[in-house]
Design a binder for these strands. Structure first.
Lengths: 339, 339
DNA sequence: TTGAAAGCGCTACCAA
DNA sequence: TTGGTAGCGCTTTCAA
């Protein structure tokens, strides 16, 4: 049960120099004679040699590690996002160092930590960065890309769903299908996603002459959607349609409605945002506005790679439009509509 | 926009030796005069110095990085597991390098990769290791802990729910509440979890004199649970109760039953396994057997730390019993039962 | 095509 | 309490 084998030991056993061993294992396998290569490979196998990636990072000053900071992993939208990021990144030989933010460890604390690990780039999902931290990342030359949040800082790139357009789309869908008394269930107050979805929704309502709507605060959870729907039902003039800032709250709202004996969509329509897998399940059949996650992730990685290559290129923000997914929770909607 | 600052530059600016700078930033902050420390800290701030963790790993031969390999992240049970692992590990100053297995990258390919990164230990969730790979990990001296699978290899530790006991519990619950014609919906065939749950279930059924039961193959997904329930309903003698190898399939089964106009639990009872958040949602109210995830994770980390400390300690397997969670999908069950 | 040697940025030991 | 110095295991010149 010996410990780590080094390239020197392999070199000795193969009867070549350590440099040659290194050459055999470097990508692109440069000028090494077949004979030398075979002997090195054989010795490596016998010794169980694995190149030490840390030492390689040390000399190349390149880690090939991407840091990902996730604020919430358990919200049903994110596991898919994470898995997709991992697959894509592993596919281009990048490893992922994952951090999760919490009450005790905010994104602002995590950033310096990630920088210490010399990540080639940092992807931050569903959280923003203080401007001090943005400055620190710029100074260190490490590109930072925000996923699913718009930027607050210059020099930080971002990829985000077009939430304003999504909110407008929701308004159009509800109005087109004959609803006149809509309500909005908001997500966590200070997230740009919820704000933008609400803004688009209200804007479009107003443009089309609907000046009155209900609003209830939620917090992106099933329970908060449930409670918000109950509160809305207790209003003197309860709504005939609910636009929820995400799908999870919409599912909670549907269950709250049903628990009160209110039929969905006959009496109250519900439309969500995200298009998580559960939205398509039999018990819900939720009509919703999708976030085109695959596309968003591809763009994020493209932007990231671009900035790793050319760190001085200006930062960019990309908005990815969503699509209307018609299921059965909004009445009077013919299947097959699209944005 | 300068690049990485090193401890040498800090030392020069602070008028001390590089060793002193190193001392200031090492954990435990050993013998350094307050004056020197202040000057170093000041210089660091001005220069924006962050210690290089890679270089530190290089000299200490300790990465403080734990590798986690996850086969599936999107199955609703795992996001919570991952988040909990991250929090716990970050709490003890360990970073996580995350890998995901797929068709193209099996666990067996991922293990050597993780070893190259010199992880202090490797946690593998919901996947097993070939014996060759187990041998490689042993040889490299890197402890491997399996989470949610029992071991196939010696020298590999594992933490797992007590699935056999859980299967027996499910049988008892169904029999005690008067069901006589139960069916089992299996998960992916070659997973020890599904096998063990089935084994316990059948064992107990037989012990209590029920010699006949239905069985349908599933694959741990909502859709497969849906389809399996449909198939079971088409049997000449359809079951009066369904035990599903996980909650997701149970939710699919409930929806399939309802779609056919079969009432749950009045006509058919359904019991799941895992106790995922959705099991408690209004639309389902699924009675299930919990996996005590928090406890499993704590044990996994404890086992891991133990083996990092003393790699020669023999490997151990720990089984964590689950509990019956009574909701509304099994008829004739008084609330408040427990295992 | 090969080998020798100089780093990469730290830690840790030793002497002062 | 400090500074000098020898590594850690690689990659990458440079000469041969």
């Amino acid at each position: 049960m010996n410990r780590k084998v080094t390239s020197i030991e392999v070199a000795q056993r193969a009867g070549v120099s350590q440099s040659t061993v290194s050459r055999v294992f470097s990508t692109g396998s440069p000028n090494v004679s077949n004979e030398a290569r075979d002997r090195v490979l054989k010795a490596s196998r016998e010794l169980g040699y694995q190149p030490n990636a840390i030492a390689r990072m040390m000399s190349t000053r390149q880690t090939n590690i991407i840091g990902i900071v996730m604020a919430t992993i358990t919200s049903p939208f994110y596991p898919y996002v994470l898995e997709k990021f991992l697959r894509e990144l592993q596919g281009i030989d990048r490893q992922v160092l994952l951090f999760t933010a919490s009450e005790t460890q905010s994104v602002d604390d995590l950033l310096p930590l990630a920088l210490q690990y010399q990540v080639d780039a940092l992807i931050i999902t569903s959280a923003t960065l203080s401007s001090e931290m943005a400055a620190i990342s710029t100074r260190s030359g490490t590109p930072v890309i925000l996923f699913n949040r718009t930027v607050s800082a210059p020099n930080v790139s971002a990829v985000c769903a077009d939430n304003v357009a999504g909110g407008r789309l929701a308004a159009d869908v509800l109005l087109d299908s004959g609803h006149r008394n809509p309500a909005f269930i908001a997500g966590i107050q200070d997230t740009s996603t919820s704000q933008d979805r609400e803004r688009g929704f209200r804007e479009r309502l107003r443009e089309r002459g609907v000046m009155r709507w209900l609003r209830q605060q939620g917090s992106y959870t099933y329970e908060s959607g449930y409670a918000a729907a109950q509160a809305l039902l207790d209003q003197p003039q309860p709504p005939d349609a609910l636009f929820c800032a995400n799908d999870i709250m919409a599912l909670g709202a549907v269950d709250a409605l049903r628990a009160r004996g209110v039929r969905v969509p006959d009496e109250v329509s519900v439309i969500g945002f995200d298009n998580i897998p559960m939205a398509g399940w039999g018990a819900y059949q939720l009509t919703t506005i999708s976030q085109e996650v695959d596309q968003m992730i591809e763009r994020t990685i493209a932007l990231m790679l671009e900035r790793i290559e050319a760190p001085d290129r200006p930062a960019r923000v990309e908005l990815v439009p969503g699509r209307l997914i018609v299921r059965a929770s909004v009445r009077g909607l013919s299947n097959g509509a699209a944005s």
